[in-house]
Write a protein that binds this DNA or RNA. Sequence first.
DNA 1: TGATATTTGTACGTATGTATT
DNA 2: TAATACATACGTACAAATATC
Lengths: 86, 86
Amino acid sequence: MDFDPDGSIDHAGPVPPYRQLAGILAARVGRGDWQPNRAIPSEAHLVQEYGVARATVRRSIAVLVDQGVLFVVPQRGTYVKGPALP
Amino acid sequence: MDFDPDGSIDHAGPVPPYRQLAGILAARVGRGDWQPNRAIPSEAHLVQEYGVARATVRRSIAVLVDQGVLFVVPQRGTYVKGPALP
DNA sequence: TGATATTTGTACGTATGTATT
DNA sequence: TAATACATACGTACAAATATC
């Protein structure tokens, strides 16, 4: 599955929003919207930007954490995974 | 962490309910309440039995699926993982 | 020192969809 | 046809840690 980094969420289609958002965010990481070891927008921001519930945002992030694309620092933010820091 | 298979959920303590329930269910599996390749009670049943939200039950199950204790068959039920069937 | 804002963690309840029985 | 069971999503609330002022 390939997603458009500039796409929006389709609440009617067969692909659940959390998968769409995971794909969109992954595409944005791949495009370089956010650099390695830098924070992506907060969950609250993504809720506003994509018009989904926070639980949906968190589920999308969980998918990408599982895939090794992002990592979360509690009470700090969610970051783009990069090469190990020396 | 070890949990009492006959314990209940403490909503006040420091251990979040989803972890408590995961521990309790794991203890019940270990004790043999449910046999391998047999279904455990439904999510709705566990909601009633332990007095937590369904999201909490699902989160507990997700932990145990991740640990290889249970597996889920959509629209069928949640099962105790056992040795591979011949 | 204290207060406030931000951010993620957890939990609740409710609703609808889909597949199976 | 109806009931059951899991999948997904919404909104809301409060806690805890961190950052800032």
